[in-house]
Design a protein around this nucleic acid. Structure first.
Lengths: 231, 231
DNA sequence: AGGGGGGAGTGACTTTGGTCACTGCCCCCT
DNA sequence: AGGGGGCAGTGACCAAAGTCACTCCCCCCT
């Protein structure tokens, strides 16, 4: 039981290099919770009860608009922590979180985590580093929303995907969307229809070939050019 | 000389409650710099050299797009610190900073600040709290950019201004813009023309009266309604 | 007085984003 | 086999955002 917990703890940057003794102390304070696909961990505005660590699966952090649209702020996978901040400043969660796939999550109550940080100042420095990364990503989202079109964001997304998990072949780079257009739209800050339309258009222009969730990038250089200048 | 520095330090949340001894130690490591209106403190992508504290004036943190548009991320006044994060994670500045008005700024080098945090763990906790607030504001910007129109953002801005610094009279609430349409557009994530046009339109609709940078809110309740639902 | 510069207003237009309403597809369920 | 449900594609719109090109105004400069 505790070996699993420890394994996860060692994988999260916040607690990676604790001594065995510290690790044991921490593990004893941790509880495990399971969330099914689509299940909500907490809602926007909920009082913050503690810190979460992802053991398996993926957790999506997002904002929900009055009109029902979603804007994804982050997707956290195994080894990531989230909600560090409200734990400290005592405020409510600024966004909602739900499981993108079935997920195993570790939970540390606010009090326990705060005490632990006080006893282990290095952990506080780690928190700052982690939060720093988060802040950079948020700034990136703002930049994209403010300066770019849906088309450009979609292109960037595909290029990132190609970079990360594309397989090369003579007819181009094969990539596969791992989510629905709906979810992709929430990532890009737009609606389903625009994702669909822009994909069609990129295909018509010869940059891509689309077949369901499989995409073949035919003209990498061309796409990269489109990403920046609208021409 | 040092009394002035100390006064500023006491006003910034990060260092507010240090002992006199600590304060002296810190003050000795601080240097003062002046920036004229419009002058740039650092650019986006510059290597991070240290932490800044605002003594007087206002500093604008912003992103600059390839097309020359600006998106303001934050405006920091006296008593605020900024650039805490890159100091810790060692990365570059994610955005540029310039003086909105003539400003006096304290500077602490990266090394000095890091050491100080290591010696004074409570300061690290303070950093987290400050950064937490910053993160919330960024999430707010994302929410606005993703879910609302320029019109709604402009209305929210005016309402906030009315709340903060409006003076009531029989003909409405008088508020005054303290910046050009250009700068306001950068705050709202749009362009000059849209600010101008939307103001005109709000006037035509009877919500406001506009005279240069003076605005009289005629229909507060109506404006509040417009802020949320587009009708 | 004349000229220059920054800020503001606006008409005309294009592009992008978003909505609505359908249709069709695929897969699973019983 | 027949029906749902979720997902994807698309046509027809409409509204918001942004661009371009001016004009006007005010203030400051010498």
């Amino acid at each position: 039981m505790n070996e699993i917990v420890e394994k996860v703890l060692r994988k999260t940057p916040l607690f990676a290099n604790l001594t065995q003794k510290e690790m044991d102390a921490l593990a004893a304070r941790v509880s495990t919770r399971h969330f099914g696909k689509g299940e909500q961990l907490f809602g926007e505005g909920d009082a913050c009860t503690g810190l979460f660590l992802v053991a398996s699966g993926k957790i999506r952090i997002f904002k929900l608009s009055a009109a029902g649209r979603e804007q994804v702020l982050a997707v956290e996978g195994p080894g990531s922590s989230f909600a560090e901040l409200p734990v400290f400043d005592g405020g409510n969660y600024p966004a909602a979180a739900s499981a993108l796939e079935d997920a195993e999550v570790l939970f540390i109550s606010r009090k326990e985590f705060q005490n632990f940080c006080r006893e282990h100042p290095e952990v506080a420095l780690k928190v700052i580093a982690v939060v720093g990364g988060r802040l950079r990503r948020l700034v990136g989202i703002i930049e994209e929303l403010s300066f770019t079109t849906v088309r450009q964001r979609l292109i960037s997304f595909i290029l990132r995907l190609a970079q990360a998990s594309g397989t090369h072949s003579k007819d181009g780079i094969h990539v596969e969307l791992t989510k629905s257009h709906q979810d992709l739209a929430a990532d890009l800050g737009t609606v389903r229809e625009l994702v669909s339309r822009n994909l069609s258009r990129l295909q018509a222009e010869g940059f891509l070939e689309v077949d369901g969730r499989k995409i073949v990038v035919k003209d990498l250089a061309g796409l990269k050019a489109e990403q920046t200048s609208p021409e």
